[in-house]
Amino acid sequence: MIPSAFDYAAPSTVEEVLAMLAAAESAGDEVKLLAGGQSLLPVMKLRMADPALVIDLGKISELVGVSEQEDTLLIGAMTPHHEIATNALLAKHLPLLHKAAATVADPQVRHRGTFGGALVHADPAGDMPAPVLATGATFILAGPRGERRVEASDFFQGYFTTAVADDEILTHIQVPKFTGWGAHYEKFTRVAQQWSIVAVAAMVKIEDGTFTRARLGLTNMASTPLRATAVEQALVGSNATLESITAACSLAAEGTEPASDLNGDSTYRKHLSTVLAKRAVLAAAGL
């Protein structure tokens, strides 16, 4: 199928986008924002989305790039996955995002798809939300009432649902630095470039052979990404050994409600999360 007819606009500033959103809201028209288009265009072709107006964000240069601040990195929402996977600042200070982005789909998608677009799309099987949740990032939104900041723990609200209002746009993601931490993203798929059946994002800090900090995110274990808090708490203070990691990661499925589908039922996903958590933590710890 092909999409229904729609109007198209390609503004060059965030202010122009907000003005278009306000005008469309007054007219009662449905609007979709086009980032990389890797998720939106297939949905439009199936006519699961039928907007009257598509606003292309590709010409807004201020939304692209990674910049360093004192204790954080500021990532533009329109920064492609490829940049996240190859950026030197991210490799040094945010290795989890750097590694997770390299696993997204294929090179073509990584060059077209955007970091912010994947986060706003909020697919529970998407690879970027859980790592971002694990970092405790802050989402910066622009709207008619000015700038609004939303913590990662409050951003993802349900299947394909986030805290971004209809008259707002995600502009940047501000992420704390995790310089010197070990990190790894472990995902399981049945075929190459498939959505993750389950994945685990892990960051750990080890001092004198003991875990002093740990942050883990779970992909596709609920309608939103989750923190594996039971694993985090079990790791901190324990020795960085195979035995302690195995014991801690056996708790990975606590508090989760994974869906059952053709790729696996809920029980299977819960077991898989413990296996992947162990692999992710071992790799992050360099063991």
Rank of each mutant, 00 (worst) to 15 (best):
P131M: 09
D56N: 15
N239H: 11
P176K: 05
H93C: 06
T179G: 05
T13F: 04
D106W: 14
T256I: 11
A22E: 14
Y185D: 06
T219D: 03
F156M: 06
S266P: 06
M1V: 10
L40K: 05
L90R: 05
F139V: 04
K187G: 02
K187C: 06
V120Q: 00
E243G: 05
P225C: 12
S250W: 00
G264K: 04
A252I: 07
N87C: 13
A284H: 09
W181P: 04
P80V: 06
S26H: 04
P11D: 04
V14L: 07
E168Q: 15
T219Y: 04
G180S: 12
R112T: 09
A91I: 00
G217N: 12
L41E: 01
K278G: 04
A35V: 09
P107L: 10
Y159E: 09
P95H: 08
L33P: 11
V281L: 11
E257S: 15
E70Y: 02
F178L: 09
S12E: 15
A234Q: 10
L170E: 06
A102D: 13
G116L: 04
M20C: 03
S260R: 07
V150K: 06
D166C: 00
P225A: 09
L63V: 12
Q233M: 10
T86M: 11
K32A: 15
N263A: 04
L282I: 05
A165F: 00
R227Y: 05
A125G: 14
W195S: 08
R269C: 05
A165D: 13
S67G: 01
T72V: 10
L282F: 07
M48H: 07
V109C: 08
A52R: 12
Q233K: 14
A85I: 02
F160S: 01
R47T: 08
I84M: 15
L94S: 11
Q38E: 13
L262P: 00
A248L: 05
A277T: 10
V191N: 09
A285P: 07
L276Y: 01
